[in-house]
């Protein structure tokens, strides 16, 4: 029973991180039908920026919760800027091209960003200080749920709620939904498509950056390659849940996190990735649109 509890907690943690990244994938896909391969790299850049910010802000005298939150804010802002720039350079010129051209462009951008960080910073692993301050009431059960895990869950829930709020109750959210549904009609209705797309990238990137910061604190180590695997898993999660659907991304991420965790615990760590992908294939065979995706009827 202990094992089950531990695996459940670890699955929840993993799922939360995947959710933060998967939301970016799913929102971008919903708006411009593009798989943003560079998104994993944005997550990584967020982690690096958070680390640099934490060092500088720490020198300026910040500490504790203040340091954590401000580092997170700086990381989110910078990641948003990167997301914007990537969109302007690599995706906007290709908005009216075939479906596959932006895909290749995204892959090229991903390679570029990875190597850019490797060269600008270092190919070595960097130590990431645990910025999350001690949480006293957690001390007795710290070996079951530690403070980092708790913070990851809370932040994820909070950000998801915030995102849902934005999408459902603001004008921007309305515009985003409109563009996702029918771009041309939205334009005719007076929505500024460019702004909406940019806003989508900004939101998605900011979320990923926060994920990067939290993982940095948790694992206490980052390097330029972390974006690759996390990105692929998060992307799988988004598709699993139904790409284009925000609740779907979260559900898919949680399902994936739990599946991997339990597979590693009860079967073998060797096969945890295999389980994840097999699960994906099985779910897509049964529901070709993903768990919460709408199977679109094609009109001829």
């Amino acid at each position: 029973m202990e094992l089950f509890r531990d695996l459940f907690i670890s699955g929840l943690t993993k799922g939360s991180i995947y959710a933060l990244i998967a939301l970016g994938y799913t929102m971008v896909y919903g708006i411009i039908a593009l798989i943003n391969f560079a998104h994993g790299e944005i997550y990584m850049i967020g982690a690096f920026t958070a680390l640099i910010a934490s060092v500088i802000l720490g020198q300026l005298g910040l500490a504790g919760w203040g340091l954590l939150i401000s580092a997170g804010a700086v990381a989110a802002i910078y990641a948003a800027m990167y997301g914007l720039t990537v969109e302007k350079i690599a995706y906007k010129p290709l908005r009216h091209s075939s479906r596959i051209a932006p895909l290749i462009s995204a892959i090229g951008m991903s390679i570029f960003l990875q190597n850019y960080v490797q060269l600008a910073q270092t190919p070595n692993f960097l130590i990431f200080p645990d910025l999350v301050p001690e949480i006293d009431f957690l001390a007795p059960i710290a070996h079951i749920v530690n403070k980092n895990q708790l913070i990851i869950w809370l932040v994820t829930i909070f950000l998801m709620a915030a995102l849902t709020l934005i999408v459902k109750h603001t004008r921007l959210g309305l515009a985003m939904r409109a563009v996702a549904q029918d771009r041309d009609m939205a334009r005719l209705s007076g929505v500024n498509i460019d702004r909406v797309i940019s806003a989508t990238f900004v939101l998605g990137s900011a979320l990923a950056a926060v994920g990067g910061l939290l993982i940095g604190c948790y694992m206490q180590q980052i390097d330029f390659y972390i974006g690759f695997l996390a990105g692929m898993k998060a992307f799988t999660a988004a598709v699993l849940g139904g790409i284009g659907s925000i609740p779907g991304a979260v559900l898919g991420a949680l399902v994936l996190g739990f599946a991997e965790s339990f597979a590693a615990g009860y079967i073998s760590s060797d096969y945890e990735d295999v389980v994840a992908f097999v699960l994906l294939i099985l779910i897509l065979i049964v529901r070709p649109g993903g768990l919460l995706g709408q199977t679109q009827t094609q009109k001829v």
Partner: peptide
């Protein structure tokens, strides 16, 4: 040398933007 893959990634993006076909 070290900039090889960086240029490669950039080349991919440029190729797609200017000649997506």
């Amino acid at each position: 040398a070290d900039y090889r893959m960086l240029l490669f990634g950039a080349a991919m993006v440029l190729m797609m933007v200017f000649r997506p076909g």
